[in-house]
Design a protein around this nucleic acid. Sequence first.
DNA 1: CTGAAAGCGCTTACAG
DNA 2: CTGAAAGCGCTTACAG
Lengths: 358, 358
Amino acid sequence: MKSKSSYGIRSIDVARLAGVSRSAVSRAFTEGAYIADETREKVLKASEQLGYSPNAIARGLITRRSRMVGVVVADLSNPFYAGVLEATCLKLQQHGLAPLLLSCRHSQDLDSLIPQLLAYQVDGVLIAASTLSSTIATQCARAGRPVVLINRYVSYDAVSAVTCDNVGGGRAVADRLVAGGHRRIAFLAGLEDTSSSRDREKGFVGRLGELGIALHARDVGNYAYEGATAAVRRLLSKRPRPDAIFCANDTMAIAAIDVARNEFGLELPRDLSIAGYDNIDAASWQGYDLTSVDQNLDRMVATAIDLLLRLRDDPGSRPQHVQVPARLEVRGSTRAVPPAKSVRRLTKLRGAGGSRAA
Amino acid sequence: MKSKSSYGIRSIDVARLAGVSRSAVSRAFTEGAYIADETREKVLKASEQLGYSPNAIARGLITRRSRMVGVVVADLSNPFYAGVLEATCLKLQQHGLAPLLLSCRHSQDLDSLIPQLLAYQVDGVLIAASTLSSTIATQCARAGRPVVLINRYVSYDAVSAVTCDNVGGGRAVADRLVAGGHRRIAFLAGLEDTSSSRDREKGFVGRLGELGIALHARDVGNYAYEGATAAVRRLLSKRPRPDAIFCANDTMAIAAIDVARNEFGLELPRDLSIAGYDNIDAASWQGYDLTSVDQNLDRMVATAIDLLLRLRDDPGSRPQHVQVPARLEVRGSTRAVPPAKSVRRLTKLRGAGGSRAA
DNA sequence: CTGAAAGCGCTTACAG
DNA sequence: CTGAAAGCGCTTACAG
C-alpha cells in the first residue's frame, strides 16, 4: 500500500523481475559492458515490461558525467543564434547529450548564471554569444569544465573557439561589390567590441585596399534592426552617397534595404548594392533577395561539439581556435557587373529579381 | 597528491573549514532551513573561500526534485517559437529552474526523445509545438510528470495547455478587414491538424458570418514561407481576386506580401490588405509593416510555468486549459476605412506607411 | 560472465 | 539549533 516511492521503477525492481542482480541491470544499459547476451535480453525484457529506464541523475552522480552540456545563447530574437541553438540541439542528441540552456539578453547576467549551470555538473559549456565577459571563462576553467565559444574568440587561452572565417567572408563581399562596379563603398559594423564584426571589417577593408579602393564611409548598427536604421539614414545622407553597403549581419542589411527603398526611394541593385552576413531565412525572402555570407552553421556547431568532447575525454588535448570556411551566397541585392549605362532615377520600381550569379 | 576527486569541493570540505557538520552546510544553502544566522554566515564564508556550491545533481537525487524542466520546441527557425523559448528561459530562471532543451523538426522524433528527457528526472515538461503526438502525453503521465502545452491543446485531459485566445484573435482580424471595406476575404490556414490554425479560422470565419460575409477563398500554407508562397499564388489568381487575406501566422503573411507585390504588382493596403498572427519582429519592419495578432508571449509563458509548478507542488491541482487574451497590433498592411474612390492601378508604388490606427 | 559491497554528494528525519 | 546516520538510485572495482 505504502511503497517507498510512489512511482519510479528502480533497477532493483527490474533485477528482481529478471532474476538477476542490480549490477546486471546496470550492465545491460551500459554500452560495451561485459554481459552475456542472454542476460541482457532478460533485463531488457523486464525493463520494457516495467517501463524502466535508468535514472540519469543517479548515473551522473556516480560516473561524474552528467551527459548534459551547458549551452549559452545570447539573443534568440536573432535568427542566427536561434539557428545555432537548433543545430546544437540536434548534434548533441546524436552524441547522447542533453543541452541545459541558458539564454540571456544582457551579458552581465551571465556571470551570475554560469555558476548555476556548473552546479548541474555539465560536462562542458558551449557559448554562442557575440559578447562575453572574461569571468565566465575563468569560472568554467576553475571548475575544470571545458568551454568552447561559437562565433567569437577571446585571448584567454583556456577557452576554445570555433568561428567562421570572418576575414575571408569580408574579402569575398569586397570582391563582389567591386566586380559590380561600386567605388563608394560603406561598411556598417555590428557591435564594436566583437571579434566577428572586427574581423569582417578587417577582411573587407583589407581586400578593398588591395583593389585600390578606400572605404567611403563607416557607421555602427550594433547588429540590430533599429540601430541599423538610424545608421543607414546617416550613411545615405552623406554626399557623395555610398553606392554599396556591406552590413556585418543580415538583420542590419534588411534594415538598410528598408531605409534605402522607403526613405530614399532607391532601387537595388541599380542605385545601391547591399550585402549582409549570416544568410538567415529572411535573406532569401523575395522582398529582400539579399546577398549574404553563409557561416556554415552545421559545420561550426559540429566542430565545436567535437572539440568539447575531445577536451572532456582526452586529457592531452589543448584548447584551440578553429575556423570554418565562409561561403558567399549571391542574390539580387548586389549586381554582378557595372550597369551598362548610367540611366538613373527613371522609375522607383523595385528591380524584380535582379541579377543572379552562381 | 592523489585526492579522491581532482577538483570539486564537497560539502564536507566546507564543513571542516567552517568547523560545522555537513548538515549545517546543507542547511546554509537551503531556503528557510532551521539554522542559526551565525552558523550560516560561517558556512557561507567558508564556501566563498573554497568556491563551493552544492552539487545540483546530488541534491536532485535525494530531494527527488531535479529543478530542471524539460522544454520541447518544434521549430526554432520560426521566430515565434524562438521567442517562446527565450521567454521560457527567463521565467524559469526566475523560479530557480533550468531548462533542459529538446528541439526537433520532426515530431515523430519526439516520441523517442521524451523518454530521454524523463530519464533526467525533469520536474515537468513544457511543450511548445503546434503538432504533437498523443504518446508523449501518455509517456509523461506514466512517469508522473506534469505536462503543459503552449500554443496548442489536446483532448487528453491529463495534459494542461495554455493558448492565446485564437478564436478572439481571428474575430478581431475579421472586424478590422471588414471595417476597411473588404468583402472578398480569404483565409490562409497554417497546418490543418493544429488547434491554433483551426481556432483562428473558426473565430475569423464565424465573425465574418455574423457580419454577413461569406469567406471568399481559402488555402493552406503549412505555417511556412514556401508553402504560403505557392498558396498565395493560387489565391491571387482566383477571379474575382480576393481583396484581403488573413494568414494564420506572420511568416505566411510576409510571403503573401512578397508575392502580392513582386508577382502581382499589388500595392498594400490599397489593392490588398494582409494580416498575420504572432506579431514577430519582422512584422514591424518597414518593408512589411504588418497588422498582426499579438499572442502576449510573456503572459502565456508565465501562465504555463505557474501551472506546471502548481501541478508539481499541489497534489490537489488538476490539469486545465488556460487562455490568455489576444491583442490586434494594427499596422499599415490593412486599411482602416474603405478607399474614398476606386482609383486603381495608378501607380505601382508601395504605399509608404499606410494608415495607422490605435 | 556475475553478484555483493562500497560509494558518488547530498538532504533530512531523528535524537539530543 | 545541531550532528550522526541513513539513504536517494545508480555504477564499478573486486572476488568469485
